Amino acid sequence: IRCIGVSNRDFVEGMSGGTWVDVVLEHGGCVTVMAQDKPTVDIELVTTTVSNMAEVRSYCYEASISDMASDSRCPTQGEAYLDKQSDTQYVCKRTLVDRGWGNGCGLFGKGSLVTCAKFTCSKKMTGKSIQPENLEYRIMLSVHGSQHSGMIVNDTGYETDENRAKVEVTPNSPRAEATLGGFGSLGLDCEPRTGLDFSDLYYLTMNNKHWLVHKEWFHDIPLPWHAGADTGTPHWNNKEALVEFKDAHAKRQTVVVLGSQEGAVHTALAGALEAEMDGAKGKLFSGHLKCRLKMDKLRLKGVSYSLCTAAFTFTKVPAETLHGTVTVEVQYAGTDGPCKIPVQMAVDMQTLTPVGRLITANPVITESTENSKMMLELDPPFGDSYIVIGVGDKKITHHWHRSGSTIGKAFEATVRGAKRMAVLGDTAWDFGSVGGVFNSLGKGIHQIFGAAFKSLFGGMSWFSQILIGTLLVWLGLNTKNGSISLTCLALGGVMIFLSTAVSA
C-alpha cells in the first residue's frame, strides 16, 4: 500500500470489461488503480535517471590570480610587451599612462603600459546536455494484498515479495511487465516523455548541487567559461569578468580578483528545477510519464477462499488518510488461513446495510499462523458509518465519521480527471477507425466523469442509474429551450454510458 502517505494521489477506475487503462505517473504523486474483478494496485514513479550526459560548457565562479607582471614604455618608444601576453592562462590589459620627467621619461606624453596576471579557477559549475534516449524511469508497484503497516513504502525485498514489484522503462524499451506472483502480471506500455523539453534544458552542477536550467539563461551567464570537458589546462574565455584592473600608474597597475560568485548564482537559480546525482547518473524529480496498463493477466487472489471465522482485533486505531479513506490494521487469532476477511461498512448496526467501498479488493489472510496481521483500506461514505470486521458474535466494529460532501468530492474528481486527460493529450485517442474513435470517446468520458459518477451514484443499482439517464434524455427531447435540451441530452447520455461502463 504505497499511496496512503502521498498527498498527491489519483484514483483511476477501469471500465467494466476493459483490459487496459491509461494513467499519468508523476514525481511526488501516486496512482491507485481499481477495476472490477482485479486486485487494487498502487503505482508510483520513484526516480527518473539520466546517463551519458555530455559537458557543454563550464563557468568559473571563484578564481585566484598570481605571478603579476607589468612592462611600460616612454612616449615614442613603441608598445610595451610581455611574453605572458601569448599565454592563455594569463589575463592581460594594455593601456596608456601619462609619462614625463617625473617618472623617468625625457618627453612628456602618453606611454604604453601592459599588465598580466595568471588566472586560476578555484571553483566552477558545469552544464551538461541531456539526450531523451538516455532517460530511465523506475516504477514501483504494490498490490493491496496481505501486507501490514511495516511494509508500507518499503522498497527492500521486492524481489521475493509477490505484493510488490519494480520495473524500469526507457525510450528504447518502453514496454515492461511486472510479475506479482499469485496476482498474475501487469503489463506497462509507457510513452517516455517527461513533459520537459530537454532540447531547451541543461543539467547544471555547482558545488555538489544540481538544477535543470534553460539553455539561453545558461549561455548568457557573465562569467569566465570554457567549452567542452575539462582537459586539465582549460582555456578560459572572458577571464576579465572576475578580474579587475585598478587605476594605472606610470610603471605598474594593481590587479585584484573578485570574490566568489556562488551567492549571486544561487539567487539567479531561484525557482529552477532541482535535481540530484546518483553516482555518474543524474536524478530528476520533475515531469511525468504516461503509461497504458494492460490488466488482462491480472487476477484476484483468494476468490475461492472461505470466510475467516475466528476473532479479529484492531492492532491500531483506524486512521484517516490524506485522501479521506480509512486504513485499518487487524490481527487474526485463527489458524484456518488462508481465508477471506469479512469486512464491510454499514450505516447502522441493526440492518448492516453496506455503504462505501473497499479500496483493498478481496482482502485475505494468507498465513495459517496465529496472530497474522493484515492492513486494508476503505472508502467510507460522508457522515457517520460503522466499520464491521468478522462474522457472528466475534465481529468487531468501529464508529467512523467522514466530513465533507459527495458533491465536493465529485467536483474534485472531475477536475482531476480533466487534468489527466489534458496530460494524456492525443495519445488517449485513436482515429484509425470508426470503432477506435468511439472507443476513445468512451475512454475520455470515463477518465473525466467516472470518479464523479461513482461518488454521486455508486450506491444505486445499474438499472436505477439507466432509468435516471433515460429520464434526462426524455426531458431533453421534450424541452423547447435549446440549451436546457442539449444539457439534459448530454447528461442523460453520459449517465447511461457510465452506468453500463463503470464497474460497481
Rank of each mutant, 00 (worst) to 15 (best):
V494K: 11
D87A: 05
S142I: 01
K340Y: 07
C92H: 08
L322F: 14
Y203D: 13
K301A: 01
L352G: 07
K394V: 15
L471H: 10
V317E: 13
L491Q: 08
E136D: 14
S403Y: 15
G111V: 00
L273N: 09
F218P: 05
F463P: 03
G271S: 09
T427S: 14
D42W: 10
C121L: 01
G127H: 03
G404K: 05
K283Q: 00
V169Q: 06
L352W: 06
T267M: 12
D393V: 14
L424Q: 10
N238Q: 11
T397H: 03
G100E: 05
T115I: 11
D10I: 01
M460I: 15
L424I: 07
L180G: 04
L467F: 12
S122K: 01
A346P: 00
A165F: 03
F11D: 07
T351P: 00
Q36V: 02
D200L: 00
E276G: 01
V347P: 15
T170Y: 06
V330S: 02
G259W: 00
D71R: 02
V415Y: 11
K395Y: 02
M349Q: 03
G263S: 09
Y158E: 01
L307S: 14
L475A: 14
G100S: 08
H288D: 10
H219W: 14
W101C: 00
M151G: 15
A418P: 12
R292Q: 07
V256G: 10
E133G: 08
K239F: 07
Q344I: 14
S503Y: 15
Y203H: 12
P171K: 05
E240T: 00
G263R: 10
E276I: 10
W400P: 08
V21E: 02
A229I: 13
V473P: 01
A280K: 00
L201Q: 13
P234N: 09
G469W: 06
K395C: 08
P75L: 11
D67C: 03
K215C: 05
G104V: 11
M34Y: 10
T115Q: 09
S72T: 11
V24D: 07
L491V: 15
V6L: 04
D10R: 00
Q261W: 11
E168V: 01
T500D: 06
W400F: 12
K209I: 04
D200N: 15
K283D: 01
H399M: 12
A501W: 10
T351H: 00
F183D: 09
G29Q: 00
L307I: 13
L358V: 14
G469H: 10
W462F: 13
T231K: 03
A311L: 14
A275G: 15
T397N: 14
D296T: 13
S455A: 13
G181V: 07
T156S: 13
Q147A: 02
V114N: 05
V434G: 08
C105K: 05
N481I: 09
A268W: 12
S499I: 07
H249P: 04
V391Q: 02
L269G: 05
A178V: 15
F198A: 02
S149Y: 01
H235Q: 12
V21R: 00
C190F: 12
K294F: 06
G356Q: 04
K290P: 15
V328S: 00
Y90M: 13
L284W: 14
V326D: 05
K93M: 10
E329G: 13
A504H: 10
E412R: 00
L284C: 13
G459R: 15
Q465N: 06
S440M: 11
D42G: 09
L489F: 13
A227F: 12
L289Y: 02
E168W: 11
R420K: 13
L472S: 08
L113H: 07
V328T: 14
I387Y: 07
H446D: 09
L188I: 15
A452S: 11
E62I: 10
S503E: 11
E136N: 04
R402H: 11
N208F: 00
H235S: 02
V97I: 14
T120G: 15
R357F: 08
P338A: 02
V388C: 15
S129Y: 01
V257K: 05
Q331S: 14
L298V: 06
I396G: 00
M140E: 15
R9V: 06
V303W: 01
